[in-house]
Amino acid sequence: MLVAWNYRYRNSPMDHIDPRARFIFSFAILFAATTTWNPNILFAVFVIAITWYSLGRLTWKDTRFGWLMISIMLFTMIVINTIITGGGAGGVVPPGGQLVWPDGVSIFGRHLNIGLTVERLWFAVSQLMRILSISLVFIMIPYTMDSRAYGVTFSKLGLPDRLAYTMELSFRFIPTLARNFQVTLDAQRARGFELDAGKGNIIQKIRQVAPLLIPVTMNAIVSSEDIANAMDLRGFGQRKRTWLYELKFHWWDWAIIAFAVVMLAAVVLLAYHFDMRLFSVPNWWYGLFN
C-alpha cells in the first residue's frame, strides 16, 4: 500500500506564505463567514476566499475528492433540508414569505403546491456562499502545505512541544504503518481472508474487519515500546526542542495577518454595531420572481 501525500510544490504564491499566517487567515475567514447572514458581507467574504484559493493554483484533478465530499454535504444541507423540506432555514428565515410558484406547478399532469419561498431560496444562496467560503480556505490546506511544516507551525502557534512533536512523529509513522497494514492484509489473504467492500450487512463487515484491525493495532503497540525506549536513551524532552524545518516571517506574511485581523474586526463591527448580523433578502432577488 503506497501512501502519497497530496502536497506537491507548485511554486504558487501560496507556497511562499508562512503556514502560521495561513492558519490565522483561514480561521479569520471561518469566524467572519459565521458571524453574519448579511448578503453583502457574505459575498465580500466569499470573494476574498475565492481570491485566496486561486493563490494555491490548484487544479480540479488535484482537489476533486475533497469537492466530492463537500458536494455531498452541500446537497444534504441545502437541496434537501433548506429547499425541499425547509428544515435548514428554520430559526434564520422568518416564517411566511413570497411563494416561488404561488399557483403551484404541474408535473406529469398532476398539480402540486410547492411551499418553497423566495426567502428560503435566498437563504440557500447565502448558505452556499458561507459554506463555500469556509471550504475554499480549508480544503486547500493538505494540497498546499508541506507535511513537514505542521509540527513546527503548531509549536510556534503556542502548542506545547510534546504535543507538536507527537504530530510530527505521527507523519513519520504513516508510511511504516501503511506497509504493516498491507503486509497483514496479504498474510490474512493467504489464509483465505476476504475483504470485499460492499458485500454483506454491517455485522458481516465488522466480522471482515476484525482479523485485519486487531493484528495491525497490536503490532503497532508492541513496536512503540522500542521507539519510546530509544527516544528516552537519547534524552527526549530534556530541553526545549529545535526543529529541522524552520519558519520565517516575511513582510507579506505580516500583511496577510494584518488583513485577516482588519477583515474580521470590520465584519464583527458591521454585524454587531451596525446591526448587519441578521438574514435579509436583497430587493433585486424579489424582482427575479415577479
Binding site: 501512501v3 507527537t166 504530530m167 505521527s170 504503518l177 501503511a178 512503540s224 519510546a228
Partner: peptide, 22 residues
C-alpha cells in the same frame, strides 16, 4: 504524558489515519 505516551499517541494517530484512509 511522558515519552511513552508521546509515542503511543503518534502511533495511534498514524494508525487511525491509515486505517480510515484504507
Amino acid at each position: 504524558f511522558g515519552t511513552k505516551e508521546v509515542v503511543y499517541a503518534a502511533i495511534g494517530a498514524a494508525l487511525y489515519a491509515v486505517v480510515t484512509w484504507a
